[in-house]
Amino acid sequence: MDELKLIGRAKKGDRKAFESLVKLHEKNVYNLALKLLKNREDALDAAQDAFLKAWISIASFRGDSKFSAWLYRLTYNTCLDVLRKAKKGEVISLTSTDEDEKVTDVRDDAPTPEEHAEKQELRKTVRDAVDALPEDYKQIIIMREFTGFSYGEIAEATGLSDGTVKSRLSRARQKLAEILRQTGTFSENDRHKNSKEVTDCE
Protein backbone atom coordinates (compact mmCIF):
# COMPACT_ATOMS: atom_id res chain seq x y z
CA MET A 1 0.00 0.00 0.00
CA ASP A 2 1.35 3.44 -0.83
CA GLU A 3 2.18 6.03 1.76
CA LEU A 4 -0.78 8.30 1.05
CA LYS A 5 -3.24 5.48 1.63
CA LEU A 6 -1.49 4.53 4.84
CA ILE A 7 -1.65 8.14 6.02
CA GLY A 8 -5.35 8.27 5.15
CA ARG A 9 -6.03 5.14 7.16
CA ALA A 10 -3.87 6.23 10.08
CA LYS A 11 -5.82 9.49 10.21
CA LYS A 12 -8.94 7.44 10.78
CA GLY A 13 -7.25 5.71 13.70
CA ASP A 14 -5.92 2.61 11.93
CA ARG A 15 -2.95 1.63 14.08
CA LYS A 16 -1.78 -1.10 11.69
CA ALA A 17 -1.51 1.48 8.93
CA PHE A 18 0.41 3.76 11.24
CA GLU A 19 2.76 0.95 12.18
CA SER A 20 3.47 0.44 8.48
CA LEU A 21 4.33 4.13 8.25
CA VAL A 22 6.65 3.74 11.23
CA LYS A 23 8.43 0.86 9.50
CA LEU A 24 8.81 2.90 6.32
CA HIS A 25 10.54 5.75 8.09
CA GLU A 26 12.04 4.29 11.26
CA LYS A 27 15.57 3.95 9.96
CA ASN A 28 15.90 7.55 8.87
CA VAL A 29 14.19 8.89 11.94
CA TYR A 30 16.29 6.78 14.30
CA ASN A 31 19.54 7.67 12.58
CA LEU A 32 18.70 11.36 12.58
CA ALA A 33 18.10 11.15 16.33
CA LEU A 34 21.27 9.12 16.79
CA LYS A 35 23.36 11.70 14.95
CA LEU A 36 21.94 14.52 17.01
CA LEU A 37 22.03 12.82 20.41
CA LYS A 38 25.04 10.51 20.06
CA ASN A 39 23.56 7.99 22.39
CA ARG A 40 21.52 4.97 21.36
CA GLU A 41 19.20 4.92 24.33
CA ASP A 42 18.33 8.62 24.01
CA ALA A 43 18.01 8.29 20.24
CA LEU A 44 15.64 5.35 20.57
CA ASP A 45 13.46 7.22 23.02
CA ALA A 46 13.46 10.46 21.03
CA ALA A 47 12.74 8.68 17.73
CA GLN A 48 9.84 6.76 19.25
CA ASP A 49 8.51 9.93 20.85
CA ALA A 50 8.68 11.69 17.48
CA PHE A 51 6.50 8.95 16.02
CA LEU A 52 4.11 9.21 18.96
CA LYS A 53 3.82 12.94 18.30
CA ALA A 54 3.05 12.15 14.68
CA TRP A 55 0.30 9.77 15.79
CA ILE A 56 -1.14 12.34 18.17
CA SER A 57 -1.31 14.99 15.46
CA ILE A 58 -1.84 12.96 12.32
CA ALA A 59 -5.39 14.24 11.98
CA SER A 60 -3.93 17.71 11.48
CA PHE A 61 -1.54 16.52 8.74
CA ARG A 62 -2.82 17.95 5.49
CA GLY A 63 0.03 16.97 3.23
CA ASP A 64 1.31 20.51 2.67
CA SER A 65 4.75 19.03 3.21
CA LYS A 66 6.03 15.52 2.72
CA PHE A 67 5.19 13.13 5.54
CA SER A 68 8.90 12.40 5.96
CA ALA A 69 9.65 16.11 6.23
CA TRP A 70 7.10 16.45 9.00
CA LEU A 71 8.53 13.43 10.79
CA TYR A 72 12.07 14.76 10.53
CA ARG A 73 10.96 18.06 11.93
CA LEU A 74 9.26 16.37 14.86
CA THR A 75 12.41 14.31 15.42
CA TYR A 76 14.68 17.32 15.19
CA ASN A 77 12.59 19.30 17.68
CA THR A 78 12.29 16.34 20.03
CA CYS A 79 16.07 15.92 20.00
CA LEU A 80 16.64 19.62 20.61
CA ASP A 81 14.33 19.37 23.62
CA VAL A 82 16.35 16.43 24.91
CA LEU A 83 19.57 18.39 24.45
CA ARG A 84 18.13 21.44 26.16
CA LYS A 85 16.98 19.39 29.11
CA ALA A 86 20.31 17.60 29.27
CA LYS A 87 22.07 20.94 29.23
CA LYS A 88 19.97 22.16 32.13
CA GLY A 89 20.40 18.99 34.13
CA GLU A 90 23.78 18.06 32.66
CA VAL A 91 22.54 14.52 32.35
CA ILE A 92 24.45 13.75 29.19
CA SER A 93 27.40 15.46 27.63
CA LEU A 94 26.66 17.56 24.60
CA THR A 95 30.13 17.21 23.26
CA SER A 96 31.31 13.85 22.17
CA THR A 97 33.63 12.05 24.50
CA ASP A 98 33.72 8.35 24.87
CA GLU A 99 30.01 8.22 24.26
CA ASP A 100 30.35 7.98 20.54
CA GLU A 101 32.63 5.02 20.87
CA LYS A 102 29.49 3.11 21.64
CA VAL A 103 27.93 4.18 18.37
CA THR A 104 29.66 1.91 15.94
CA ASP A 105 28.60 0.57 12.63
CA VAL A 106 26.46 -2.47 12.65
CA ARG A 107 26.28 -2.96 8.93
CA ASP A 108 29.18 -4.57 7.20
CA ASP A 109 29.32 -3.79 3.51
CA ALA A 110 33.05 -4.06 3.06
CA PRO A 111 34.22 -7.17 1.32
CA THR A 112 37.56 -7.57 3.06
CA PRO A 113 38.58 -7.06 6.68
CA GLU A 114 41.21 -4.51 5.64
CA GLU A 115 38.78 -2.47 3.61
CA HIS A 116 36.22 -2.79 6.33
CA ALA A 117 38.65 -1.54 8.94
CA GLU A 118 39.68 1.32 6.71
CA LYS A 119 36.10 2.27 6.06
CA GLN A 120 35.29 2.08 9.74
CA GLU A 121 38.22 4.29 10.52
CA LEU A 122 37.22 6.86 7.93
CA ARG A 123 33.63 6.94 9.14
CA LYS A 124 34.73 7.35 12.68
CA THR A 125 37.02 10.19 11.70
CA VAL A 126 34.22 11.97 9.86
CA ARG A 127 31.88 11.32 12.78
CA ASP A 128 34.42 12.75 15.20
CA ALA A 129 34.90 15.74 12.97
CA VAL A 130 31.15 16.40 12.89
CA ASP A 131 31.08 16.12 16.67
CA ALA A 132 33.86 18.64 16.92
CA LEU A 133 31.78 21.23 15.07
CA PRO A 134 30.04 23.98 17.00
CA GLU A 135 26.50 22.84 17.87
CA ASP A 136 24.81 25.15 15.33
CA TYR A 137 26.98 23.88 12.51
CA LYS A 138 26.57 20.29 13.56
CA GLN A 139 22.79 20.48 13.69
CA ILE A 140 22.41 22.14 10.32
CA ILE A 141 24.77 19.76 8.55
CA ILE A 142 23.06 16.72 10.05
CA MET A 143 19.72 18.10 9.09
CA ARG A 144 20.77 18.65 5.52
CA GLU A 145 22.63 15.40 5.03
CA PHE A 146 20.22 13.09 6.79
CA THR A 147 16.87 14.51 5.92
CA GLY A 148 17.60 15.78 2.44
CA PHE A 149 15.65 18.89 3.37
CA SER A 150 15.74 21.79 0.94
CA TYR A 151 17.06 25.09 2.26
CA GLY A 152 13.47 26.30 2.47
CA GLU A 153 12.48 23.31 4.55
CA ILE A 154 15.46 23.74 6.88
CA ALA A 155 14.60 27.42 7.24
CA GLU A 156 11.03 26.52 8.12
CA ALA A 157 12.07 23.87 10.61
CA THR A 158 14.71 25.95 12.34
CA GLY A 159 13.24 29.40 12.08
CA LEU A 160 16.35 30.67 10.28
CA SER A 161 16.18 32.70 7.09
CA ASP A 162 17.01 31.00 3.78
CA GLY A 163 20.12 33.15 3.51
CA THR A 164 21.32 32.12 6.95
CA VAL A 165 20.74 28.47 6.14
CA LYS A 166 22.82 28.82 3.00
CA SER A 167 25.71 30.62 4.66
CA ARG A 168 25.66 28.50 7.83
CA LEU A 169 25.77 25.29 5.84
CA SER A 170 28.64 26.65 3.82
CA ARG A 171 30.55 27.63 6.99
CA ALA A 172 29.78 24.26 8.55
CA ARG A 173 31.20 22.43 5.56
CA GLN A 174 34.28 24.62 5.47
CA LYS A 175 34.86 23.98 9.14
CA LEU A 176 34.31 20.24 8.74
CA ALA A 177 36.74 20.12 5.83
CA GLU A 178 39.26 22.04 7.91
CA ILE A 179 38.97 19.61 10.82
CA LEU A 180 39.33 16.62 8.51
CA ARG A 181 42.32 18.23 6.89
CA GLN A 182 43.95 18.69 10.26
CA THR A 183 43.40 15.04 11.09
CA GLY A 184 45.00 14.06 7.81
CA THR A 185 41.91 12.30 6.57
CA PHE A 186 42.29 13.37 2.99
CA SER A 187 44.97 12.16 0.61
CA GLU A 188 48.22 14.05 0.35
CA ASN A 189 47.04 15.58 -2.86
CA ASP A 190 43.75 16.70 -1.36
CA ARG A 191 45.45 17.97 1.73
CA HIS A 192 47.85 19.94 -0.35
CA LYS A 193 45.07 21.36 -2.40
CA ASN A 194 42.88 22.16 0.56
CA SER A 195 45.58 23.54 2.73
CA LYS A 196 46.29 26.32 0.33
CA GLU A 197 44.39 29.45 1.04
CA VAL A 198 41.39 29.59 -1.22
CA THR A 199 42.12 33.21 -1.79
CA ASP A 200 45.11 32.15 -3.89
CA CYS A 201 43.09 31.20 -6.87
CA GLU A 202 41.24 33.23 -9.37
Binding site: E26, Y30, L34, R40, D49, F51, R123, V130
Partner: peptide, 20 residues
Amino acid sequence: LIEDTEDVPEGFSAGVMDKV
Protein backbone atom coordinates in the same frame (compact mmCIF):
# COMPACT_ATOMS: atom_id res chain seq x y z
CA LEU B 1 28.08 10.94 6.60
CA ILE B 2 25.17 9.40 4.74
CA GLU B 3 26.62 5.91 4.83
CA ASP B 4 27.27 6.13 8.53
CA THR B 5 23.94 4.75 9.63
CA GLU B 6 22.80 1.99 11.92
CA ASP B 7 20.02 -0.50 11.74
CA VAL B 8 17.08 0.31 13.93
CA PRO B 9 17.08 -1.61 17.23
CA GLU B 10 14.86 -4.66 17.23
CA GLY B 11 11.32 -4.01 18.39
CA PHE B 12 11.46 -0.33 17.49
CA SER B 13 8.06 -0.14 15.79
CA ALA B 14 6.47 -2.35 18.46
CA GLY B 15 7.82 0.09 21.04
CA VAL B 16 6.23 2.99 19.16
CA MET B 17 2.91 1.17 19.06
CA ASP B 18 3.15 0.46 22.78
CA LYS B 19 3.53 4.17 23.36
CA VAL B 20 0.60 4.84 21.04
